[in-house]
Design a protein around this nucleic acid. Structure first.
Length: 254
DNA sequence: ATGGCTTGAGTGTCAAGA
């Protein structure tokens, strides 16, 4: 089973690239973030024509998540149950017995911002809900744009980013809380190249200069992680014309 | 140097991203 995640920064703009990527990689599930598309305008016909089903929760202009799957999904849920949030950032569904949670964690803007407090509250709510969800679903994967670089090796210039949003102690502690539930960072189950990143700023030719962060992740519960065969970042789409600023991450399970 | 791109909204220019 192949699971993937990609922050596409507008599904409308990136749809041709998403369809190309699906055809090339044939994942069982592709989690998308920042679709920026309200549900009535979701490009369902094009995705179905490519042989995929879609479960989605979006809004105009901002946020928006979707799970594209080869097989129909079961028990889809949108949002974090019990956490009232007008921002469409989570969608969950069961695919071949695996509970797949697609998340777009708030950016936080800066550690001084109200958006940062919202980010930490949001992460606490996600963690509390996942604790329950994992009790119901031993085989669970959490995929998405976490907007957290877990360690200094996930940052091109740790000194420049020290204490900044995406790298602050409180955000990293929130990530540790998630892994503490028994969710393993599948990328770190394997030997990986240095300077492995999933996001590069559009500005300053950051991609060419390898100035990135690893903020998109695939976490797997113990039962699922035990069958993980690989996890890798596909930086090829970042070379496309009009690329997303994020690269897809892919994990394969036996 | 708080800039530097990109997107969506909407048609001038700003919020938001990370």
């Amino acid at each position: 089973m192949k699971l993937a995640t990609w922050n596409v920064n507008s599904l409308k703009v990136r749809l041709p690239q998403v369809l190309d990527w699906l055809a090339a990689h044939q994942p069982d599930a592709l989690c998308l973030q920042e679709t920026k598309t309200e549900d009535a305008k979701f490009p369902l016909a094009e995705i179905e024509a490519a042989g995929y089903h879609a479960s989605f929760s979006g809004q105009k202009t901002y946020n928006g998540v979707a799970i594209l799957t080869r097989q129909p999904v079961n028990a889809a849920v949108h949002g974090i149950p019990g956490f009232d949030d007008p921002q469409k950032r989570v969608t969950t569904a069961t695919i071949s017995g695996v509970r797949v949670v697609c998340a777009y964690v708030p950016n936080g803007e800066s550690v001084e911002s109200d958006k940062y407090r919202y980010k930490l509250e949001w992460l606490a709510a996600l963690t509390a809900w996942l604790r329950q969800e994992m009790a119901q679903h031993p085989s669970l994967a959490l995929l998405g744009d976490f907007n957290i670089a877990p360690e200094d090796r996930d940052v091109h210039d740790p000194q420049a980013w020290a204490g900044k949003v995406l790298c602050s102690d409180a955000e990293r502690a929130a990530f540790v809380q998630l892994t503490g539930l028994g969710l393993q960072d599948t990328f770190r189950l394997f030997e990986q190249p240095e300077k492995s990143f999933t996001w590069w700023d559009y500005r300053m030719q950051a991609f060419r200069r390898k100035m990135g962060l690893r903020i998109d992740h695939i976490l797997a519960s113990g039962a699922l992680a035990a069958s993980c065969r690989s996890c890798s970042i596909d930086s090829e789409p970042r070379r496309n014309e009009r690329p997303s600023d994020h690269a897809p991450v892919i994990a394969e399970f036996a």
